[in-house]
Amino acid sequence: MKSKIYDSFDHAVSDIPDGSTVMSPGFGQVGVPRNLLAALNRQGAKQLTAVSNNAGTLDDKIDIGTLIEAGQVKKMICAFTAPTHPSQVTPFVRMYNNDEIDAELVPQGTLAERMRAASAGIGGFYTPTSVGTELAEGKEHREINGRMHVLEYPLPGDFALIRAWRADTFGNLQFRMAQRNFNPIMATAAAVTIVEIEDKIVEVGELDPDHIHVPGVYVNRLVKIPSDGIFE
């Protein structure tokens, strides 16, 4: 079998073309694939549709906001398109206010479930989330068991950039604590899944099959974060 292990982040993202839909996880600064995002920033792909929980933060760490600031993202799909405090003017907020970037605002649970639907071959699902709000306007409504729901569609990706704790050479993945967040659903919702590994890549057979969070069949490329890489 062809090895999934790549020697560098730059090599692992070199073929991501302009116009791709790129998923990148992370929640509360944990589980963000910063090394792969930095490599995609260097690679320079443009006109990307980015799927993430938020559109970047104000700190100087590399996240999806780095690619937004560099003009690589044409559309953001996320659960926050305005800052939680008006003083937090991120590059995304500035560009969004100037109509320089497009955005689709999705409730967080709907965002997660849309990706899961994409990975699971589900054509859509009805959820009570957002019923009676602006975000449900124009969506198909259906009453199910006496409760109103709205129809939501799957959200597939072309590439997922993933941060995991451990992998084996086949790409079976393990996450640690809250690092897991969106990682498994993005890894399974995207056509090509590229993973940066924080702890180590072990030989096939060393991980307990009962403790695999993402099966290796979903994983295409692995890069171990080198000692001088970004760990937090």
Partner: peptide
């Protein structure tokens, strides 16, 4: 989640939690 005089909104998980 939204102040109409500002563009965009911050929902996070609030709508899922509030509805369910």
């Amino acid at each position: 989640w939204r102040i109409p005089t500002r563009k965009g909104g911050g929902i996070g998980g609030a709508m899922d939690l509030a509805a369910c």
